[in-house]
Design a protein around this nucleic acid. Structure first.
Lengths: 217, 217
DNA sequence: AATATTTTTTAGGCTAATCTAAATTTTTAT
DNA sequence: ATAAAAATTTAGATTAGCCTAAAAAATATT
């Protein structure tokens, strides 16, 4: 059993390591958790002793298999709750993150299975992120950041990075939500800004924004 | 803002005081919280400093107005979540208490208002207990424990005391859930056991059980 | 009324999660 | 290659919530 704090650290490590594919540094983790390096070190030792991560002093942290499964279950809960909030309670997709951060720590596998069923076994959450199944398996759709594509590209918004609430509000304003068709009408080489067609609306977006829009197809 | 632990203590005090109508003793509270008297004293001091309760040394604890409102909001959340679990997720009414104990601490008034709306503004939870509105008001229906009534009584099960999970399972087995019609066919003076008709089934129940069935009409 | 019993409070410690400040190790720059 | 800078760890405190043991107050008993 992990404490709420341990669960949050583990989830942060999982995300920072890109799903376990690279080592995470103490300062990175401390910053992500809004805490100090000393606190991160303490928690790293705890999670390491419990074998959710492996840890080499001064080098960094890697997630173990056990840690990945645990992190994925928290992510599963987070994304199912976000889906519930949007699909059933009528929340806007840009305002569910904070509440889901609380709900993801509710401990009841029966609850999560029933919720999953109630929602019709959704594959992705309202931001387009895949929902792990109850074994921790993720169906990864290949996705590319929009800024890496050229004029003429036509596809679908698959997901958006859901870190920043202001970004989400902006994306909502311009209609850039997952599932929407998007076309690149033109791209400015100088600063990589682009004009795109989203849902039949022409919009100019900066590189900062296009980096956070992931497309597929 | 109250911590999770403070919220649980306050709720326990509210219940033990019968909704604020009598003083609660330190040992009572300690027992209800599965902790020691010394810990209860510590928490009493904290809640008292925050003016959720008033406290007189060696005498006991009373809930303030502020404390009642706060406790009622936790109870509102608990009962709305129980209703959600039963009505929407298909849980049985006798197995929702533990999960609701966790969900009641989720902090988002927007969430609770949306949930209330989604559930159709229910007046009572699956155990028949009234759900306080968002101002903390309760519509109290007059209810009597079944053991205080006589042969021939005909009414409706209004609620059951939801403290003990084994009791709930038993009540579920004999069909004694809120809303069901109930009639007293006979009563044994010696031990106050009775034969009742629940949903067209004849059942013998002991006083221990009839005390926990609240009826109305 | 004086003593025994029970209840409650206080005193002093423990653990989890945090912090600051100092020490240590690694990395970077000259 | 050595010194300076940055990153990390360790040491030592702090707070919340809990504990045990001892002290104090209230209640019950003779």
């Amino acid at each position: 059993m992990l404490s709420l704090t341990e669960e949050n650290y583990l989830k942060a490590i999982y995300h920072l390591s890109d799903g376990g594919s690279k080592a995470v540094l103490t300062n990175e983790l401390a910053e992500a958790m809004n805490t100090k390096a000393a606190s991160a070190t303490d928690m790293i030792k705890k999670l390491s002793a419990k074998e959710f991560i492996s840890y080499e002093k001064y080098y960094g942290v890697n997630v173990t298999h056990k840690g990945k499964v645990e992190a994925l279950m928290v992510i599963r809960k987070h994304r199912l709750w976000e889906t519930f909030l949007v699909d059933k309670l009528g929340f806007n997709w840009d305002e569910v993150h904070e509440v889901a951060e609380q709900l993801e720590h509710i401990n009841s596998s029966r609850l999560i299975e029933k919720l999953d069923e109630f929602l019709g076994y959704p594959k992705v959450d309202p931001h387009g992120d895949p929902i792990p199944d109850n074994k921790g398996k993720i169906k990864a759709q290949p996705q590319l950041p929009l800024d890496q594509l050229k004029k003429g590209y036509l596809g679908k918004i698959a997901a958006v990075k859901d870190s920043d609430s202001n970004l989400l509000k902006y994306l909502d304003k311009i209609g850039a939500k997952p599932g929407t068709k998007i076309k690149i009408l033109g791209k400015e080489d100088y600063d990589d800004s682009m004009e795109v067609l989203i849902d039949d609306h022409r919009v100019f977006i900066s590189k900062e924004v296009s980096q956070n829009i992931l497309v597929s197809e």
